[in-house]
């Protein structure tokens, strides 16, 4: 009989320790709060899934969640095509390249809160440039949630489209010249070049862009907080901020986290489903062809 020795498990210990510190312990404290009632005296009482049920039955939560999803959807629907369009029209050589890259990178370098402040002022109907210009059309982000919503979307597009454009640009310049040459030989139209060469080859960077933009926009907090200070429209994050009970907060955080995880996973799985396709060589070997 072979001697059995379980000491090899100790080799996993360092990794376990790292993961514990970086993820498991912080997450578990939140989980811990979410199943307890924390009294004003600091006493804890076990409440099971009570907080979760309360959150999932709260209309405010569902409204915020719905608003978040629509917000992310609108953001992606604008930023991805717009970013790709900008990238397609950026120069490939000459002095225009650094100029474009720096201009594109500028919004990304501004801290979130400052972006919020900029737009808060920009949109003010008494002194803001945009606010004053749009005042006559009835625009007022402080009074009208739809106007606030519009302002937030405009702000996010201004802030983040260049990230998509830069990623797409990086993807575009990495396409070998031979593809464009072959397309010219094959007489492909500009649209066909985009549809059959550029878009498929952008697949990977766009996956990253979509994931990043989804996660970021879904977690949006600083900007609405800066612009409308937790007023309407209410997002999951601002709702979370305004929740007082520790247990409810924790339960909401866990649900929020799981939603982001699930949606990101679905995006990723859908967008990379073709990558694992076996080559014909593999198939030939497997099928004995």
């Amino acid at each position: 009989m072979k001697p059995v020795n379980h000491k090899a498990w100790f080799l996993v210990a360092p990794v376990l320790l790292l993961v514990a510190i970086s993820a498991i312990i912080p997450l578990m404290t939140v989980v811990n709060y979410s199943v307890q009632y924390v009294g004003s005296t600091g006493k804890f009482a076990w409440v099971g899934d009570e907080w979760y049920r309360e959150v999932l039955h709260s209309e405010k939560f569902w409204n915020a969640l719905w608003r978040n999803l629509v917000f992310s959807g609108v953001i992606l629907a604008i930023q991805i095509p717009l970013g790709v369009l900008i990238a397609l029209n950026m120069p490939r050589k000459g002095w225009g390249v650094p100029v474009c890259l720096v201009l594109m990178a500028l919004p990304l370098l501004i801290p979130w809160y400052v972006v919020g402040m900029i737009w808060q002022m920009f949109g003010r109907v008494d002194i803001g440039l945009m606010g004053v210009m749009l005042r006559d059309f009835g625009y007022n982000y402080e009074g009208d949630p739809m106007d606030a919503w519009f302002t937030l979307i405009l702000m996010d597009v201004w802030h983040w489209t260049s990230l998509v454009a830069l990623l797409a640009y990086a993807g575009l310049v990495s396409i070998p010249d031979a593809y464009y040459q072959a397309a010219r030989i094959d007489g492909a139209s500009k649209w066909a070049v985009f549809r059959f060469i550029q878009l498929p080859r952008l697949g990977r960077v766009l996956t990253i862009a979509i994931l990043l933009r989804f996660m970021d926009s879904f977690m949006i907090f600083t900007e609405p907080f800066a612009v409308i200070a937790g007023g309407d429209p209410v997002f999951l994050s601002t709702e979370l901020k305004q929740t007082v009970e520790l247990g409810k907060k924790a339960a909401m955080s866990i649900i929020y986290f799981l939603i982001i995880l699930a949606v990101s996973w679905v995006f990723y799985a859908v967008m990379t489903r073709n990558d694992g396709e076996p080559t014909s060589a593999d198939k030939a070997r497997g099928g004995g062809a």
Partner: peptide, 25 residues
């Protein structure tokens, strides 16, 4: 017509569509 040193294919198309492409255009 020109064939290059390294393969250039339209990888979202099938083999057949690849061959049809220059004619369709």
């Amino acid at each position: 017509a020109q064939v290059f040193q390294f393969p250039v294919i339209y990888d979202t198309m099938t083999v057949r569509e690849n061959l049809e492409f220059p004619l369709r255009n």
